[in-house]
Design a protein around this nucleic acid. Structure first.
Lengths: 345, 345
DNA sequence: GTGAAAGCGCTAACAC
DNA sequence: GTGTTAGCGCTTTCAC
């Protein structure tokens, strides 16, 4: 029999519990028990079923299972601004790790750091009936999630707390980390210290820590040296050049986050200026380049968020919890004085 | 009425189509039509339904929808070795971007670069009935996926082709990129050129390109300078030191990937040796440090994989497709001769 | 333009 | 130890 011109492509169909049951000569429920590893199945039956399942290449349908079991999937959503930022990639890795231990999986969705997209992206995740929502908030207000919280979905905010929502959160010890960094610079003789960063929550907090350290030490703040207009590395590059082009220049810089550090480094290298630098967030080449940083365990933030989500799932009634991930100064040279010449950049 | 001691926590329940239908005084199907934006609903009815849905905070259950629609979710699985490797993070970002345009979401699962975990992790994803499987293979054999392929699930391999499986794939122009790099080193006068990398597919191909370039130029290969035992940055650091401790040392190094580059850089800085370096894969600080690299668009790899998956979904019958992402040499100084002193490390 | 009934694949509840 | 029945929330089919 040769092709008739209207060949319909016939796909082999996927085996269901029923198919396995028929082949094994048992009921659907028995197969279900075997597949889910429940008790009350004789060894003999179990073997027959297992063999039938293998023969048919049976793969349980989690969609159906989750639907039946209460409409909640064994999945946590991680909504994040930008996956290519190594900090968030590490947080994601931590989330994944925390989930793997529990047999849950992670769905990642990205807001592209656009406040306007947050609600839409989050909504898509909630329609998937995720077990929990892990969110790096970017919008100015999360009150739109109050209803979901009441419905029992754990909502954990990472890196920044929620605004107008009683959600749990995991943050870094931003102020303390920044204070430590500035104190170290002060201890090494620096008095003209600049801060470069943005106005997101973390940078705000770090700026506050920076100010606190200066204040405690009795050093007057210089407004021009508080640059909070740098979001990208390019911004930080520009800000650094501007600071160094002024009549009076800072002798040390605290970078608000890893992207800022990159930009500052580029500017320092290009201009061949010798300025002490401490970065917030560790990064791959920091050790190689002897860059002193305020470091922390980004993976721990992810794991901790999962822990909170699971805890919240168990007890929906308690007050919002906040976990703080410690930050510690990792001295490598660039923040000590004087900044080593030519070994750095 | 005061607490009775056995307060059962009553959660508000989630609204279903039926609830909305009752409130709006219409049938379930009509609500379904409105929610999914289908035709054949009068404007008046549509408004009533929409209002009822909002009032009840109705959120459609994708689990149920996907199950009913044929048991396939609007999700693609991306199975990856390590999320913290910036290269893969960028690929993931590309996947996400490609999917967002289609209204699909991405589930990420991690194998921790462990061949033994691949099948299990992949299986979990397939049980979720993903639309397609995007896989960075790590196991030595993917023949276990043949059945799934026949069932109609598009399987796209990224960065490395599948083994013993007729799956589509997206790879980088590894050989050409490496050949270009070595040719450039040769053109700048280098004759003693080492390769440091591992034995994964990409590094294998890059080594082949390296050999080809040397062969074409008439430079004899030196086995000791083909180091394929370096997987991590620490390995590369060690390998570099060993190479530089030998009686005859290479004057240039081609690094097999971004992790290797990091390790080589560390070794060069610590030992204060001046050796030309070209890295495979671009990285954040490469420009700042004037490191010449073979660069490519990792995001494009992700987007291309999504494109192939969608195409395969439409036509399951065609032969396996392979997309090649171009690689080009980005000259920045470290690969030109002589390697600039002290500005680098 | 709208609705009633059936069923996607699975498991909870309850037989036996 | 095993089977039967019902139903998770939705969409498909077909009727009106």
């Amino acid at each position: 029999m040769v092709g008739d011109g209207t060949t319909t492509r016939l796909l082999p169909s996927r085996a269901r519990l029923l198919d396995v049951a028929r082949l094994a000569g048992v009921s659907v429920k028995t197969v279900s028990r075997v597949v889910t590893g429940h008790q009350n199945v004789s060894k003999h039956t179990r073997e027959r079923v297992t063999q039938a399942a293998q023969q048919l290449r049976f793969r349980p349908n989690h969609l159906a299972r989750d639907l039946r079991q209460g409409g909640v999937s064994r999945t946590m959503a991680f909504v994040i601004g930008d996956l290519t930022n190594p900090f968030y990639a590490q947080v994601a890795a931590g989330v994944e790790q925390g989930l793997a231990d529990e047999g849950l999986t992670m769905v990642i969705a990205v807001t592209h750091d656009d406040p306007a997209q947050e609600a839409r992206v989050v909504s898509t995740m909630l329609e998937r009936r995720v077990h929990s929502l892990l969110l790096v908030p970017i919008a100015a207000d999360q009150s739109y999630l109050a209803g979901e919280l009441q419905l029992g979905t754990p909502i954990i905010c990472l890196d920044r707390p929620a605004q107008n929502l009683a959600a749990d959160s995991v943050v870094i010890a931003n102020r303390a980390g920044a204070t430590d960094a500035v104190r170290s610079l002060l201890a090494h003789g620096h008095r003209r210290i600049a801060f470069i960063g943005s106005t997101v929550y973390t940078n705000d907090e770090r700026l506050a820590g920076y100010r606190q350290a200066l204040f405690d030490f009795g050093v007057a703040a210089v407004t021009e040296w508080e640059r909070t207009d740098a979001v990208t590395a390019a911004d930080a590059d520009r800000a650094t050049r501007e600071l160094l082009a002024a009549p009076v220049t800072p002798t040390a810089i605290l970078a608000g986050d890893n992207r800022i550090s990159t930009g500052v480094l580029r500017a320092l290298r290009d201009t061949q200026r010798e300025v002490a630098l401490i970065g917030f967030d560790d990064f791959d080449l920091a050790e190689t380049l002897s860059i002193t940083v305020v470091s922390h365990d980004a993976g721990q933030m992810g794991r901790e968020a999962v822990r909170l989500a699971l805890a919240r799932h168990e007890d929906l009634s308690g007050p919002p919890m906040q976990s703080v991930i410690p930050a510690r100064l990792t001295l490598r040279g660039s923040g000590e004085t004087p900044p080593p010449r030519s070994r750095l950049y």
